[in-house]
Design a protein around this nucleic acid. Sequence first.
DNA 1: TAAGATGTTGTCTGT
DNA 2: AACAGACAACATCTT
Length: 542
Amino acid sequence: MEAPTAAMVWFRKGLRVHDNPALDAARRGAGRLYPVFVLDPRYLRPDPAAASPGSARAGVARVRFLLESLGDLDARLHRLGSRLLLLRARDDDDAAGAVCAALKDWNIGRLSFESDTEPYALARDKKVTDFAMSSGIEVFTPVSHTLFDPADIINKNGGRPPLTYQSFIAIAVEPPEPILEEYSELPPVGDTGEYELLPVPTVEELGYGDISQEEISPFQGGETEALRRMKESLQDKEWVAKFEKPKGDPSAFLKPATTVLSPYLKFGCLSSRYFYHCIQDVYRSVRNYTKPPVSLTGQLLWRDFFYTVSFGTPNFDQMKGNKICKQIPWSENEELFVAWRDGRTGYPWIDAIMIQLRKWGWMHHLARHSVACFLTRGDLFIHWEKGRDVFERLLIDSDWAINNGNWLWLSCSSFFYQYHRIYSPITFGKKYDPNGNYIRHFIPVLKDMPREYIYEPWTAPLSIQKKAKCIIGKDYPKPVVDHDTATKECRKRMGEAYASNRLDSYSSKGKPSNLSRRKWSHGDQDASNSSIARQLKTSRSD
DNA sequence: TAAGATGTTGTCTGT
DNA sequence: AACAGACAACATCTT
C-alpha cells in the first residue's frame, strides 16, 4: 500500500460541493481524490419507441437537466483543483460494475457515497459495498439526501414508519445542521491509467437531435443555478413567511407560485439541510411565519415523510403486496390512458397540464393533483401505477419516494381517503385563470377560443369554433368522458372498493388496524436492516 | 369502548 | 372578496 490514501467519492444524487458529507469525508487525509459519476446508457440513450422524446428512463428535459448538473459539478470541482471523472457503464443499469472496476484499477483505499434508500439504489449499492468490503476498501455512506435518517425515524417510531404527517413531525423535530465550510481546494485527482475520461456530453451528442427549436424546460440544472434560485426565492422574506402551499396558483407558469427547487433537491444540486437552514434564517428575521404542513419547511418535511414511509414499506411502489395500499379494481382502458398521457382528453385544463409535463418536465403541485385525480378516482378509474410511470419518466424532479407517495395519496389508496373530494377538470383551473392563459400557451390550437368556452370548448357554437379556427372533434378532441357521469360512477366504485377492503380486513379476524399493526410488529427487532432486506427483494427490474 | 376531533390543497350555493 | 355550510363521508388518532 502506498502512503497517501487514494479515496473515491461516488456521485449519484448529491450533485453538489456544498454540504456534501461523502465528499467531505473522502477529501480528508486523502493524497489523491477520485470524484466519479457513472453514465448509465439506459438512462441516457434515446429510445425511439418511447411515447415522447427521451430515453427509456427519462424524458429529454430530465436528461438535459442531469447533463447540466454534471457539467456544473465538474466546473465547480475544477475551481478546487479537481474534476469530475465520468465513467460509462458497459451494460445497461450496471453502474455498480463500473465503480467496482475503477476501485480495483485505481487501487482505491477509501470509498464514500451518499446513502440512497430507493430499492433500485439499495440493490446497486449493495454490489459495490460487498465488493469493497471483500477487497479491504473502507466504505462510508452518510445520510445527507434527506433532513433525517429514515431508518432512525422508523426505529424511534417502534420499528414502523409513521403513516401520518403529524406522527412523523412529532419524531422528526430538529434536522442536523449542514456543513457550512467552504473549500479552497481539494486533493489532486490521481492517475486514471488506461481510462478514457469522457467530457460531459450534450443532448445533441447523445443523439436527441436539435432540441433548441422546441419549447423545453426553462429550468437549468446544476448546483450554481440551485443556489442562485434558492437565494432569489429567499430574498423575498414576506413571501417566505407567508408561504402556504395549498394557496398557490397552479396555472402560473411565467412566474411559478413555488420555488421550483424540487428538481435541484431531487438530484441533490441543493442540500435539503442547507435549504432548511436558510429558511430558518429568514424565519428568525420576521415576526410571523407559516408552519408545517403548509409552510416552506413543511414541504421539506413532506419530502422526508415520503422517504421514510417508502423506506419502511415493502412494495411501496405497487398496489399488490403493499399493506398500506387499498386494493382497488381499477379498470383497464388503453385508449383512455393514452389520451390522458398525450394530452388529448378533450379537457383543456387536463391536457395543458400534461403538455406542460411533456415539454417542461414540471408542473405545479396542484396541477399534478388535477391530472392524477382525473386519471384515477375522479374520472377515468385507471390504475395509479400507470400514471406514476408517466410522471416518473417525464418529471425533471421525478423522485421515487415522493412520486409514488403522491400517487397513493391522490388515488385515495393510502394516506388520504376522502374520495368524494374530486377536482373538477373545468372549474378548478378556471378559478385561478378565468381567461385560460395557461391553456392558450400550452395548447396553441385553442388560443383564439373565447374566454367563456376555453375550459369547455365543446359547448361553443360551431360558428364560434370556426371563427377561433378550432373545430372540436377535428382540431381539438371532444371530451373522452362526460365528467358528471364519470365522477358519479367513480364515486360509486370507490365506495364499493372501500367496503370490500373493510370486509377483507374483518374476515381475516380482528380489526383492520390491529391486524396491520400485528403484521408490522414482526420486523421490529431490527427495523432498518429488515426493511433493507425487504426492499432488496423487491428491487425494480424494469 | 364509543365518540369526537382531525386531516396540506373539492365543489357548489349562498351570504 | 372571503367565508360558511351542505354535500356525503373516508381513516386515524385521542380521549
